[in-house]
Design a protein around this nucleic acid. Sequence first.
DNA 1: ACCTGAACACCGTTCAAGT
DNA 2: ACCTGAACACCGTTCAAGT
Lengths: 219, 219
Amino acid sequence: MPTKRVPLTKERVLRTAIAVADERGVEGLSMRKLATELGVEAMSLYHHVANKHALLDGMIDIVFSEIDPPAAGGDWKAELRGRGLSTLAALRRHPWAVGEMEGRGTHGMANLRIHDAVLGCLLGAGFSEPMTVSAMSVQDAYIYGFALQQVDMNPETPADFAAVAAQQMVDYEAMLADFPHLVRVVGGHVAKVGYDYDAEFLFGLDLILDALEQRLPER
Amino acid sequence: MPTKRVPLTKERVLRTAIAVADERGVEGLSMRKLATELGVEAMSLYHHVANKHALLDGMIDIVFSEIDPPAAGGDWKAELRGRGLSTLAALRRHPWAVGEMEGRGTHGMANLRIHDAVLGCLLGAGFSEPMTVSAMSVQDAYIYGFALQQVDMNPETPADFAAVAAQQMVDYEAMLADFPHLVRVVGGHVAKVGYDYDAEFLFGLDLILDALEQRLPER
DNA sequence: ACCTGAACACCGTTCAAGT
DNA sequence: ACCTGAACACCGTTCAAGT
């Protein structure tokens, strides 16, 4: 209703799509709803984006652009720790992203940029070329996997919450009998309020970075 | 056309849904197509499954049921290594699964069963309760994250392959100038045929398991 | 050049009706 | 009890037509 004069651009389409997905989940993002949000008809979007797949490609690369790349000169462990935290933060701001990153053949410029920086950081630290590939692979798998698990904790459709709670109770019934370790450990430590996801994330990230340091040729 | 007498059961609906998703991706799985595959109308499915969300819940728990749970008594590292490999194998057989596991509040029985076994294995190894939670969290994040990256490598729609190849070339153009480390490392080691995903997976899994062993109280 | 109305071939799901 | 036909409210995308 307000600024109806501002013209449609690819940038504006992508930014608005991200806002919609952040708010309503990727399930709640349709070309038609996005168009309405932009004060336009659905078909107008196709002048700025080839199709919905390309729309998601663009959205995902914007998420990658929010990640701080590690510097190559300094303390490589600190740099990669910072990059890990920055990645998790971006994926937490855009919880739909991690589930859509897989299977889409193409890689955006921002994606390539941060991976290039990570490789440069590891090579600068003294890792061999094959070891650098492996070292990046473990870190990325861990970071994306952790983000994925975290999304799993916060159900994105609050409408399902009652169903979830009910199912939880059914599970609990069986758990008491069949899953003693889950009852003991999860009941005792995870279910208590204030479970600290950032601390949990850093435990794993530091575990991996320290283990990688031990694989460094010299020292 | 052949066996039209066999009655619809939840089991048969879920198994067929998995077969369809394995073959055509989760995008290619609709209630209507699944019904056709079963020689039935779409609405008949709703007698065995509450809705599509519940269908996916059931499918995912069948994937979990294909994972070998670790034993509690033996060599904990070997057991958890085996469980990691078994999980990766299941997620490779059903590439759609890892992208659908997130965000769905509910957890099936097979899911709970294998997590209970992992916890039992770690507790049996001598880890404290909070450490057991952390140790399972790193492993799961790594395993699911690795599976996610692997799906990313194999584009699930072979129709897009030409587009992917074309985009790859565009990327390469820019890479030569802007992403020197990617060109050096990925060009030299990853792009060469025969990149061994299982070896890469085990590098990270063993790195994590060895690092966890160092955190064990006694030894 | 940029936007759109109408249309096509799909979706998930409900509901009243059939056997 | 189990299955279905017709209908509703949605999808992504194409295409010829408007400005």
